[in-house]
């Protein structure tokens, strides 16, 4: 089989006009692995959500009470 291998040789011209074109392309931002959350952060966020929920419910309750009298 050595003959077959020698059949396919790359051709690198050393004379004549050479044209090298490297076109810089635009870059994409990379895929983003999402960081996992620590237990503390999870708890803080949960507490904050619950506090906001409690606050909203209280506001709703106040609104319902106001128009009646």
């Amino acid at each position: 089989m050595p003959e077959v291998k020698s059949m396919f040789r790359e051709v690198l011209p050393k004379q004549g006009q050479l044209c090298v074109e490297a076109t810089p392309t635009m870059v994409l931002c990379k895929p983003k692995l999402l960081p996992l959350k620590s237990v503390t952060l999870d708890k803080l966020e949960k507490m904050q959500r619950e506090a906001q929920e409690a606050f909203r419910q209280q506001e709703l309750a106040q609104k319902e009470q106001q128009p009646q009298p």
Partner: peptide, 22 residues
Amino acid sequence: PAVRPITQSGRPLTGFVRPSTQ
């Protein structure tokens, strides 16, 4: 930064967030 995204502060994106890394 060509491989790993960076955060606002210029550090590579970490695999874990804590309150202090925020």
